[in-house]
């Protein structure tokens, strides 16, 4: 947007919202919001606490494990569905089901199957992240230009060479799937820990909730949000660097 002929940066309005938040908090207009300055002050306390470091460690480990599992299983499954009609017809329904199902309802199941610990959170991250990776990989493999494969075949390419062509041609879609999977995975790691509630940030949240430490709670939420947003931004940037060759496909 431009204001009096000056270009105003896109996310600058967040400053306006923060000021508004402070006013609302100062005058106690909406109970939900303590003054923003208090939240910032609490943030220092939260970050320096020992339990925070531990919570972050558990969160990062379970997130990375769940995501790795989603990649290792999701990409081959997507490939299989993209290449085999039979596999696609058998599995497509389930992939789409899990993609739009309220997966939070499954967390109680994971809790009794895998216990109240990291494994449950890992499985939750996996379930949140994997389906979009499968679906995008499948779409990418499906949309590889037939002429590219014919070209490779016309020179007498081997199966492994054809496979390489399919993988590289599908890479932009696969990466898009990974990016969306990563964002979903963040939601998974938070929801998983909230429900398990005795490990990681979930334990911190319940601690602050029980002690009515609103500012601390908000501080932790904001930290999580910042992490999630920077992660999404980082992946989007990486993706753009690969996208240079995706310009051709529409």
């Amino acid at each position: 947007m431009t204001l009096y002929g000056h270009h105003v940066p896109k996310m600058a309005s967040l400053i306006v919202w923060v000021i508004l938040w402070e006013i609302v908090g100062r005058f106690g207009l909406v109970m939900l919001f303590p003054p923003f300055t208090e939240v910032i002050a609490a943030m220092g306390e939260v970050v320096t606490s020992r339990s925070f470091a531990e919570a972050i460690r558990i969160t990062v480990i379970s997130y990375l494990l769940g995501l790795a599992l989603a990649l290792v299983l999701g990409i081959p499954l997507g490939f299989l569905m993209g290449l085999s009609r039979t596999a696609d017809k058998l599995l497509n329904m389930w992939v789409n089901t899990f993609l739009s199902a309220p997966l939070s309802a499954l967390v109680p199941v994971f809790m009794i199957l895998f216990g109240l610990g990291t494994p449950t959170v890992v499985v939750t991250v996996f379930m949140f992240a994997v389906w979009i990776i499968v679906l995008d990989t499948r779409a990418g493999v499906r949309h590889v230009a037939p002429s590219l494969l014919e070209m490779s075949r016309s020179f007498g390419a081997s199966w492994s060479e054809l496979f390489k062509i399919i993988f590289l041609a599908a890479l932009p879609e696969i990466l898009a799937g990974i990016r969306l999977g990563m964002i979903r995975g963040v939601k998974g790691v938070v929801i998983g820990q909230l429900l398990v509630s005795i490990i990681g940030v979930g334990a911190l949240f319940s601690l602050y909730q029980q002690n009515f430490q609103m500012a601390h709670f908000w501080a932790l939420v904001l930290l999580l949000f910042a992490c999630a947003l920077s992660l999404a931004e980082l992946v989007a940037r990486l993706e753009k660097r690969i996208q240079y060759y995706a310009g051709e496909r529409n």
């Binding site: 939900l32 939070s104 963040v186 939601k187 790691v189 938070v190 929801i191 909230l194 940030v201 949240f205 319940s206 909730q209 609103m214 709670f217 908000w218 932790l220 939420v221 999580l224 949000f225 999630a228």
Partner: peptide, 8 residues
């Protein structure tokens, strides 16, 4: 992850 706000 908006779900984090639910307890709040």
């Amino acid at each position: 992850p908006m779900a984090a706000l639910i307890p709040l």
